[in-house]
Design a binder for these strands. Sequence first.
DNA 1: TCCGATTTGTTGTAATTACAACGGATTTTT
DNA 2: AAAAATCCGTTGTAATTACAACAAATCGGA
Lengths: 205, 205
Amino acid sequence: MKPETLPLFAGTKDAKLALLALLPRKAEYPRGARLLSAGEKCQSIGILLSGGADIVREDAGGDPVTVAHIGQGELFAESFACSGEPLTVSVVATLPSLVLWLSAERLLSGAEPQVTANALRLFARKNLYLTQRIEHLSRRTLEQKVLSYLRSVRRAAGTNTFCVPFDRQGLADFLGCDRSALSAVLSKLKRKGVIDYHKNSFRLL
Amino acid sequence: MKPETLPLFAGTKDAKLALLALLPRKAEYPRGARLLSAGEKCQSIGILLSGGADIVREDAGGDPVTVAHIGQGELFAESFACSGEPLTVSVVATLPSLVLWLSAERLLSGAEPQVTANALRLFARKNLYLTQRIEHLSRRTLEQKVLSYLRSVRRAAGTNTFCVPFDRQGLADFLGCDRSALSAVLSKLKRKGVIDYHKNSFRLL
DNA sequence: TCCGATTTGTTGTAATTACAACGGATTTTT
DNA sequence: AAAAATCCGTTGTAATTACAACAAATCGGA
């Protein structure tokens, strides 16, 4: 994936130049490598050019929890880098990965205005995504969580039949529940005639 | 609350000027008024100068749910305004309120760089806050949710004794559970000697 | 201080969910 | 094609939680 084609540089006259202003560094990591560790302060925004990684919380009291997955082209650690807070999570490569590191300081001052505006938009979008997930997670019962989620996907798709970007385990993680409990709720909803589904294709009536 | 003293304008040479570049409009709302309605596209970022408001989701299938409260000095609708997405929630005044509306378009291009940088930092912080809440909400049991939350407050406070900024009902809403169930879990943890508390002052051992 | 209102804890019950185990289906690898 | 691995739904059980109702404690005026 070419850095200049990233959404962050959309609309710039010279993406290459805009990129250089952010002091880019590329780094390769083997599978299993730690890109960042909890407790550090990080000055750089990460962009995963290729490969895959997990954001992991290793809590003192509890066992480690995978908070999110990072796919190709996605930003990570941007909030920590831009807010100056130390990391509360670690980032671990699940595949051999190529990472582009960009200076957060430069992004905050000294970058092309178009790039900063893009960043603001990206941050806003992520906020919306997080807020939506919170709305699903806040429902009291699993059935409500599932319906809240399916309705949000339907709204985004604009059709009653749509696909979800998860397998069952992924959806269970996203909704903060057990996979088999999710399966049970889904088939109950199917029996009740509220939804229909096959694999990750759903219909909401 | 004076607009020029807002964090958004911190570090500007002339806060008044920086404010004017964002085409500010002030508006007053009586208690119960809708500041924004789901489905609209909003071009403006809201800042609550005084009063109080709730962010409410009115779902087709379910009853309305209060997603968040907005207090004095807080931003709202900023993510929708900056990303261009239509609102999925409504905003309702719970008290007579004074709102400062600022042009999102201007913030994205044409604002003082310092202001844009401040916005980026604020968005980043909100991001972290939302992510943390998701981590709590994702735990499987209420006990884990509570401990996850209390540990995060302890980490922020740096001491084993600390106060939480919620009453019980507020904490229950934040953790997505029933208030009495929360009370029950808290006293179980107290009996087990894991925590101690009185009102909203907690000690985590 | 007294009263009313609000907040918080407790109890009981019904419903929900986690968890583990298993079997069938599907996919991938050899 | 066979074997292995993964994914998915089902079942049973124990634990958890929602929910409603109520009692105790706390708070805020009058």
